[in-house]
Design a protein around this nucleic acid. Structure first.
Lengths: 154, 154
DNA sequence: CTGGAATACTCAGTGCACTGAGCAACGGAG
DNA sequence: CTCCGTTGCTCAGTGCACTGAGTATTCCAG
C-alpha cells in the first residue's frame, strides 16, 4: 500500500512526454540529428558567431553537454569552431553551408512533426499547453538561478 | 534568418520542463535516488513480485534502461531479484525493508516538491496541465504502439 | 516429443544531462 | 606590471534512454 499515482507527478509526465517526442522525432524528422542538436543549429542560424557557453544558455544546456553536442556537430561537418582572436578562451561557432542546408531541411520536417504531435489538442488547448509548461519551467529555473537582484547581491 | 521559435516546440519545452524538475528533485527530494528509481520503487510497492519487463511497462522504461535502474537499486539493497521458479526467464522483484522505508520517506518529500514545482499554477490550471500532457503523451505512444486491433492483425 | 517461434533478459554502442575538478586566458586592483 | 579572481572550456564520473544483436527458456504445432 501507500503507493502513489504517478499520473499526477509532473516529473513523471514530463519524462513520458519527452520519450514520446523522442520516438516521433526519430521516425518523422531524423535519425542522425537529434532534437538538442537541431536546437543548437537553430541558435546559430539566428546568431552566427556565438561562443559555446552562450549557445548553451540559448538552448538550455550546461557547459559539458553543449561541448559534446557541438563536438558531434563539428565531426559531421555541420559547424566550424574558431578561437576568438579577441579572447583566447572562447570558441566562436558558425554553421557550414552543409549545416545551414541541414537546418533548413529539418525545419520543415520538425513543423510537420509538431503538428502530428499536437494533433490531439485544439488550437486553443495548444496555446494553453505551451503557456502552462513555460510558466512552470521558467519558475523552476528562477528558483535555482538567483536572477541577480536589483540591489547589491552581497 | 529562417530561425525558428523554440518556445512553440513541444519537444524543447518538454526537455526544459524535465531539466527544471531534475534540478528541483536533486535539491528537495534526494541526491541518491533519482525520479525514475522512485517510480520503480513505487511500482513495486503497488505490486510486489512483478517481473522486470512489467515494471518497465508500468513506469515507461524500455528493457535496457529498466535493467540498469534495477541493478542500481539492487546494489543499494533496496530490492531483491529472484528467478521465477515457474518461468526460468523471469526475475521476480520485491522491495527489501530498506526499500519500503526509502519509498515511504521519499513519498513525503516528493509531494512537497510537486507542490513547489506546480506553485505557479492555480489548482484549476494544474489539472488542465496534467490532462493536456497526458493526452499528448498517450496519443504519441499509441502512434508507435499499434495497440492490437480488434480484428486479426495479420 | 521435437523443432521453431516467442519471450525475458543481457550486452555493446550511441547520445543527452548534470556535477565537480582542473587548466588556461582575461582583466581589474593595487 | 603583477597578483588574483572570474570566465570559457575540458575531463572524469554517474545516470537515463534507445536500438540492435545475442542467449536461454518456454511453449506450441506437428
Amino acid at each position: 500500500m501507500a503507493a502513489v499515482d504517478l499520473t499526477t507527478h509532473p516529473g513523471h509526465l514530463a519524462r513520458r512526454l519527452q520519450q514520446a517526442h523522442y520516438l516521433l522525432w526519430n521516425t518523422m524528422v531524423s535519425e542522425e540529428i537529434t532534437s538538442p542538436q537541431f536546437a543548437v543549429l537553430n541558435a546559430l542560424v539566428a546568431e552566427p558567431g556565438l561562443d559555446q557557453r552562450t549557445v548553451g544558455e540559448r538552448v538550455g544546456l550546461d557547459r559539458s553537454t553543449i561541448a559534446e553536442v557541438i563536438s558531434r556537430l563539428g565531426r559531421r561537418g555541420l559547424l566550424d569552431k574558431v578561437r576568438d582572436p579577441q579572447d583566447g578562451r572562447r570558441f566562436l561557432l558558425r554553421l557550414t553551408d552543409d549545416g545551414v542546408r541541414t537546418h533548413r531541411k529539418l525545419t520543415v520536417r520538425t513543423a510537420r512533426m509538431n503538428q502530428v504531435f499536437l494533433a490531439p489538442l485544439s488550437d486553443d488547448e495548444q496555446s494553453r499547453f505551451f503557456e502552462l509548461i513555460r510558466r512552470v519551467a521558467d519558475a523552476a529555473e528562477g528558483l535555482r538561478n538567483p536572477a541577480e537582484p536589483l540591489v547589491s547581491p552581497r
